[in-house]
């Protein structure tokens, strides 16, 4: 009973502390997201009559599979959102583990509860971050394009639907894109949380970013970041048959394994 109470209080503390600690960084991130969305909206408007879904799709998609290095294109926006999200999330927990673990764990009397609260915070924060990206993108593009809609637009009909291998409504496409980003970032961020137990935070971050970068080159469903690459999912590519069921189950299993490993390591770790 006490452990559950302490867990709830620690989770509340993480939410309150991280909001105050990171609000300026998140503010800058969302301003950049808004600018990027506005730029994409203006760009697409010149091609065809577009809506918010089209803009969000173009802003958050990857570059798909490639056959050889000559036709490799760097998915700049995809890397930007993934990397910045990982930075924002780890920036807080690295700070809190380094500066406050001593004062918080002594009060909670449990290292495991302290880290468990961090893992739940990570789930909530990751979801909130990408829901924020979608909301900002939706609102800004709605303002730029002059209409707020999740309906099929001429742009969707002419430029997205022909690429779809499976029938998907704009809303379903958005949901899959959003969940893909959330699960991928959650897995990578938890991997980083495990790595910071052994390595310098900067080195841990670089390793995770490297893992992210490899996913743009290597065609393997076992790489965690690949599951947020919408063009590599079966809805756009039946040949590789990467289904959302596999993506979500694999990511959930990976997240659970990493979380358990992080908890076990942290329980035995000295707080220096």
């Amino acid at each position: 009973m006490r452990k559950r109470l302490v867990f709830t209080r620690l989770l509340y503390r993480d939410i309150a502390y991280s909001f105050s600690y990171s609000k300026i960084k998140y503010g800058i991130f969302f301003i950049l997201t808004a600018l990027l969305a506005a730029g994409k909206a203006l760009q697409l408007q010149e091609i065809d009559s577009a809506g918010s879904v089209d803009v969000l799709y173009f802003m958050l998609k990857d570059e798909g599979y490639f056959l050889n290095l000559d036709n490799y294109q760097v998915p700049v926006d995809w890397i930007f959102f993934q990397t910045v999200a990982l930075f924002l999330l780890s920036d807080y927990y690295v700070h809190d583990l380094g500066r406050n673990a001593l004062y918080v764990t002594i009060r909670s009397s449990s290292k495991a509860t302290f880290l468990l609260a961090k893992l739940f915070w990570l789930i909530l924060q990751t979801a909130a971050l990408f829901v924020g990206v979608f909301l900002v993108g939706f609102c800004v593009t709605g303002l730029v394009l002059g209409h707020f809609s999740l309906e099929v637009t001429p742009f969707y009909q002419h430029h997205i639907m022909p690429m779809l291998q499976l029938d998907r409504s704009p809303l379903q496409l958005m949901a899959q894109l959003l969940i893909g980003y959330i699960v991928t970032t959650l897995v990578l961020s938890t991997a980083q949380l495990l790595l910071v137990q052994f390595l310098d935070p900067v080195v841990s971050f670089l390793i995770v970013v490297l893992l992210l970068g490899i996913s743009t080159i290597v065609d393997s469903r076992w790489l965690p970041a690949i599951h947020s690459m919408i063009l590599r999912q079966e809805i756009f590519d039946l040949e590789h048959a990467l289904s959302w069921q596999f993506s979500y189950l694999y990511s959930a299993a990976f997240f659970i394994v990493l979380s358990i490993a992080a908890l076990l390591v942290y329980r035995r770790k000295d707080i220096l």
Partner: peptide
């Protein structure tokens, strides 16, 4: 030094820690 929040008053910083127990 504990990692007190720059944007909080001294009281609010201590309250955040006191809320744990």
């Amino acid at each position: 030094y504990p990692g007190f929040l720059n944007g909080y008053t001294g009281f609010k910083n201590l309250k955040l820690l006191a809320e744990i127990n």
